[in-house]
Amino acid sequence: MSEIQDRLGVPCPACSPKLETVHEVLSPGEGSITVRCGECGHVHKIQPESTPEVTLDVVVSQGGESFTANVTTPEDERVEVGDEFLLETDEVLATVRVTSVELDEQRRRESARADEIETVWTREVDNVAVNVTIHPEDGRRDDSRSITMYVPGDYEFTIGETEAAESEEFSIDAVVVRGDAAGYDRDRYEMDGDVVLAKDAKRVYAWDETSTAWSAW
């Protein structure tokens, strides 16, 4: 449905049945709208215009698995990589982010009108898994190890701060940002105090602090 405004241009059955005149909206509603003609003051009801809709296939990546759902949206709605929306099905209620838009013949785009799209590829961002690479304190990268943190999507990773997961304690050295994340001016953050949300983090790099944390001296 199109957005209802304070004033609309519609024909008036009393003074201008064929030409639109400015009307004041008295009582908006989904079934009908009560308006008053600005020319003659006649009050009458009109049916709001509806926007044609399309149903899109949505593939959701969730915790290493994926499933397919459907959403209905206005056909002229533009869908872009990075868009987030609430997906509600019988199986799941989750916020998802668009990671790719697929047109016919498997053509991928950054954005497209809904009526041009065959499949919207997304991933859940309410709760996410973030890969963390931990380097030993002595700097020997060959001894680096990886763990996975499971955190809410809006969890903040702050450069220079200490985190703990899977019996590990480590200080964050850098965060690589995902390509579908918006609001960042670079793809890697490594200055103390920089913050990246977990749902936007492709990988976290850190220095091991486990041995220091448990040392008795």
Rank of each mutant, 00 (worst) to 15 (best):
E91F: 04
I46F: 01
D104I: 08
E77V: 00
T89R: 03
F85R: 00
T68I: 10
E102N: 02
D90F: 09
Q62N: 10
K45G: 07
R107N: 08
A112Y: 00
E80A: 15
S61I: 06
Q62C: 13
A94H: 10
E118H: 02
T55I: 05
E88N: 02
V58R: 02
S111M: 05
R107A: 12
T119V: 15
D115N: 14
Q106S: 10
S61V: 09
S100T: 13
R97Y: 00
T89F: 07
F85C: 00
S61E: 15
E110L: 09
D57V: 12
A94N: 05
D57Y: 08
E88M: 09
S100R: 09
E102A: 01
P48C: 01
E53V: 12
A69F: 04
G82H: 04
E88R: 04
T51V: 15
W121S: 08
T73K: 13
S61T: 05
G64H: 08
A114R: 01
L56G: 02
D115Q: 07
E75N: 11
T72G: 04
T72E: 11
R78I: 15
I46M: 04
E75V: 00
E53P: 07
A112D: 02
R107S: 10
S61R: 14
L86A: 14
V98G: 03
E110M: 09
E105K: 06
R97T: 02
A112L: 06
R113S: 04
R97D: 01
R78P: 03
T68H: 13
V92M: 09
T55G: 08
D76V: 03
D83Q: 13
F85S: 01
E75A: 11
T119F: 06
W121M: 14
R107G: 02
R108G: 03
E116T: 08
Q106H: 03
I46D: 00
Q47S: 14
D57I: 09
T51N: 13
Q47K: 11
E49H: 08
N70S: 13
E80Q: 13
P48I: 05
L103I: 02
S61Q: 15
S61W: 11
T89K: 06
V81T: 02
T72L: 05
A94Y: 05
E49F: 03
R107F: 02
I117T: 07
T95P: 07
S61H: 14
R108H: 08
F85A: 02
